[in-house]
Design a protein around this nucleic acid. Structure first.
Lengths: 195, 195, 195, 195
DNA sequence: GATGAATGAGTATTCATTCAT
DNA sequence: TATGAATGAATACTCATTCAT
């Protein structure tokens, strides 16, 4: 198989996001995705190993782009404080800008089975790495106390942002997401700074 | 249907937790649950409307018990600080004591479709109410600043605890969960107190 | 089993007619009939061997009464011509007076399987006997030609009346059935008389 | 769906006639029909919406062919008398030549629910139209009296032929059906001609 | 006689995947 | 590469019937 990046590959990924967001994971048959992508059912299997592979590839593709983009942006910030704020803003902004993608990542992707969940976590590591590097830098520069439990800190940061986004999706994105970055940032930062 | 609490009802709920934890939701055929519960397949349908109803009832049952139990325990604590710590401890302790239940609530329950998710959220409201009452009390007593955004605070608290538990489950409960209560509590409390 | 004629027996028969007419054969569960009859599900089995037995008993009961009643009435007529007219009128009148019964005999009873159909035909023999005796008398008195094929004649008479009633039922009994007796009688009589 | 006339479509229809005739409608599982047709279970659903659709399509197919064939044959006859005789003969001949089909149309098809019965009646209209056109022509040419009730006449003709065939099927086709055409024709014709 | 909780056999249908063209 | 017709495994749910009370 291998990652055949081609026009059709992108077409199918994007069709999958749209179809899954609109119909839900269990109502998104391969044939429906194929139709939306404008290809034959069988063509899907020239680019993806199976249906699960569409899902995981979709997540890899979107998440990979996001992590790389975030990494570059973060490099421009010098303080740990600013870096954390930027990361939160980027996270909220990306999903606010693509509601379909938000539905897929926050709700539908989690309907997959354990095996798939494990692979998704693998992809997530890139993102969690970003969080971790901020934490490491914060500790090294003395901004965060040495005694901090990095694993818990990472889970608090990710869990909080994730929960904020999920609530926004479940509430049909009826409010703005980006403005929540500042208060969320303040809360997380304070929680981490103190000892 | 109606909630027919009876011996068989409990039997089926507990069989479902075990079977779903061991096999995953999609590999937990009704017949498998019935066999584990020691009843006939058809008997399931005397107590539950359909397979989904087992899942939601299971959550209602367990979560309802937990919320009520927590509420009573919390009444014995006077300070907001202690209450938050106790809530976190109760949360972690309950799931650490029943790994099967933890698997179901953290992983399998989320594989359900949107309609079911909405009903699950309905049940969750009881728990979120507990968090909220602590926040309200904290603000009223001046322990938390007035300017705090209660919605975000609630999401940070729940999202953090939930993420901590999920990670513990995904890591095959290879470490102790309860000891994480203290550092988690400190982090959340500091995050909320400052302004 | 044996035909236990009792109050409950009648209750169940009449409940069955009502339930089947209103819900159709396949939507008439034993529990629904029991409820309509005001008895427990299990009680049904004290009076009937199984579900099919309700159907066949229902038909025996209603058809038996009808045949006996018709037989008595026919005895008062002297000419074959009048007898045939009376039989047709009785047939149409009985079913016009009980639309639910008509639905059951013309439509729902025929949804039963072959085995049941055979038993129903057994019951029908009483009615076909009435037709046959008129034919025999007609031939003996020279009213009908000797050359007539009695079997075909019987099938023509029964088939015609039956089709007329079925059409009336399928057309939601939107017109009067009894007035069709005269023209139907004339047609059948002429068809039989000539040679 | 649409009427995909293809080799497989025919195969399935013919397999259905055979299987249903031999096992009865309720004992004719889709898998049994598929096996007889030499296709996979799922293939059935590429050609038919559901199991009921096989039944109705089967009837449409066979009845449609029969009506068209009859219409062409009838055009060659000039007198109303001959036309009626031919129609009866064609009807009896077709079903005598295909006993399985006769079982299905006379017995099994009638085990369907009301909704299906309504659709079947729709298909029957073509055949009833043939009868009606003979009646109209007979009245116009003065062969039948003007006073005749066409609806009743049609029901008498159809009901008689249908009953004759049903009896033949129920009697396990132990006698010849075609010879009954002449006496049946004579009876119906006389019934209609007189006033 | 009467009840109704419990039983468990039985089947239409979907849809991811393949492969001949 | 691309197609799409064909495949066939897999399962929730109903309901007639029983039998302990």
């Amino acid at each position: 198989m291998g990652k055949k990046r081609g026009q059709k590959y992108e077409q199918i990924i994007n069709a999958a996001v749209k179809v899954i967001a609109e119909n839900g994971y269990h109502q998104s048959q391969v044939s429906k995705i194929a139709k939306e992508a404008g290809v034959a059912d069988g063509t899907i299997y020239l680019y993806f190993k199976n249906k699960e592979d569409i899902l995981i590839s979709l997540f890899e593709e979107k998440m990979g782009t996001f992590v790389q983009f975030s990494q570059e942006k973060l490099a421009s910030k010098t303080s740990v404080e600013e870096k954390l704020l930027l990361l939160i803003k980027l996270h909220l902004t990306q999903l606010e800008a693509d509601y379909n993608l938000a539905i897929v990542t926050q709700l539908e992707l989690r309907q997959s089975n354990l095996a798939l969940r494990t692979r998704i976590n693998e992809v997530l590591k890139g993102y969690l790495g970003l969080i971790d590097s901020i934490l490491v830098e914060g500790i090294e520069t003395g901004f965060f106390p040495e005694s901090i439990d990095r694993r818990i800190a990472r889970q608090v940061i990710f869990g909080s942002i994730d929960e904020v986004v999920t609530n926004w999706v479940m509430k049909d994105h009826r409010y703005k997401l980006k403005p929540l970055a500042e208060p969320l940032h303040k809360m997380l930062l304070n929680g981490l700074k103190q000892e």
